[in-house]
Simulated assay, not measured.
Amino acid sequence: MFITVVANLLWDCGFAAPTLSASLPVDTRAEPRVDNDLAMTEITVTRADTPATVRDKARRAYEHRMSSPGGLPEEILQVVPDRVAYALAKGAGERDILCSNLGTLPETLSALGPHRCTGVAARAIHPRLTTAQLPRTRLSGYLCRTGDDYTLSLVGLHRTVESPTALTSLALTTLFRFGIPAHSW
Rank of each mutant, 00 (worst) to 15 (best):
Y150K: 03
T151P: 12
G147V: 02
T146M: 15
L102D: 12
S153F: 04
D148G: 12
P106V: 00
R138F: 00
T130D: 14
L105W: 04
R138P: 06
L105K: 04
A121C: 12
V120D: 11
A111S: 13
R123S: 15
L143G: 11
L157I: 07
N101A: 10
D149K: 11
S153V: 03
G156Q: 03
R159M: 07
R128E: 15
R123W: 08
L102P: 13
L98Q: 09
L157C: 13
R159S: 14
S100I: 00
R128G: 11
C117T: 08
D148Q: 13
T131I: 01
A122W: 08
L154P: 12
I97P: 03
T146D: 15
T160N: 10
A111C: 11
T146A: 15
T118P: 01
T151V: 11
L143V: 06
T104F: 04
R145E: 15
P114D: 02
T104D: 14
A132W: 04
H126R: 08
P127G: 00
G147I: 03
D149Q: 14
P114Q: 00
R116Y: 00
P106E: 06
Y142E: 09
R116E: 07
G113N: 10
H126C: 09
Y142S: 10
V155P: 05
Y142T: 03
L109K: 04
R123H: 12
V155L: 11
G119V: 03
T108V: 09
P114N: 00
Y142G: 10
L154T: 03
P114S: 02
T130Y: 08
N101S: 10
R159D: 15
P114G: 00
T104G: 13
L143M: 13
T131N: 05
S153E: 11
R136C: 02
V120Q: 07
H126V: 01
D148H: 09
L109W: 10
L139D: 11
T160P: 04
R159P: 14
G141K: 08
T151M: 10
T146Y: 09
G103A: 11
R128S: 08
L152W: 04
G119D: 13
R123C: 13
D148V: 05
G156C: 06
D149H: 12
G103L: 09
P135I: 00
